[in-house]
Amino acid sequence: MKSEERRSFLKLGLALGGTALTGVGCLNSKSDQSEEKVKLLSTDGKLVEVDASKIQEVDHHHHHAMSRSESREGIPGKKFVMVVDLARCGNARKCIESCEKAHHIPHSRPFIKVLKIQDNPDSSPYWMPKKCYQCDNPPCVKVCPVSATYKRSDGIVLIDNERCIGCRFCMSACPYSARVFNWSAPEQPADYDLPYSPETSVPSKIGTVEKCDFCPDMLRDDKLPHCVTSCPNGALYFGDKMADSVTNGDETVRFRKLLEDKGGYRYLEELGTEPNVYYLPPVDRMFPFEEMEEDS
């Protein structure tokens, strides 16, 4: 299955998607008679009527980059969660690749790691994809002296790299080592002329902290984060807790039912950080555990 096909993310962003679809639909019935009215669904969910001639298509594939202040607000009515099915992870590392590509980050400081975890000496090791857990009680946000890292209403923790002073207190505070630092000038394509947005985390800046951002720019376009769509095994489920629905691109399932059926848990629950990334235990595995070849 091609990753593009999985990107139709049904449950997400009803409001924006609704407007755009209706708008496109109306454009097809192109008319010059200005008297003709069309009914549209506005972004806040109201039914409105406008002159057909006034309608302009909104480019909904490339949402404009959210400004630094806009990025501080979450996407209304959403609470994003991720569920990682450890039984499906075969350490293909496609999530890391796609994330590096999308965020233009070098191999030395990936946002995602796939760790070999062995819970006790007698149990079999397994691969555990790990990214920022977007905690509800985020240690990083609590220690930041300048509010450069912040928690949004949709649950996402972002970093404003134009405010970050590079004190790295957040890196010490994060018990999951989710944060990376631009120790030197970032190696990124020079032709990167898009304006900076905390939602895209590009361009990176020297002397500031970065981490996995749950790809809010994709979410605004009703698309799944890059790691989810690139996983060949469908190990990553992503969705909206409010809608109780998560999808790995192949199947869309109820979030709570999934946790209930498969014994979902959060890593290091005892730290009280309230992560928004859940794990399903590595039972009935799709792959036997294989060590990675030592190459890179």
Binding site: K142, V143, C144, P145, V146, S147, A148, R163, C164, I165, G166, C167, R168, F169, F181, N182, I206, G207, T208, V209
Partner: peptide, 23 residues
């Protein structure tokens, strides 16, 4: 000297977040 962005030191005053132990 330890700061990654000493040029933004003024942020500590402008965006001071009193909840942070650094402050």
């Amino acid at each position: 000297v330890d700061m990654g962005r000493p040029d933004r030191f003024v942020n500590v005053l402008v965006h001071m977040r009193i909840q942070s132990p650094i402050i």
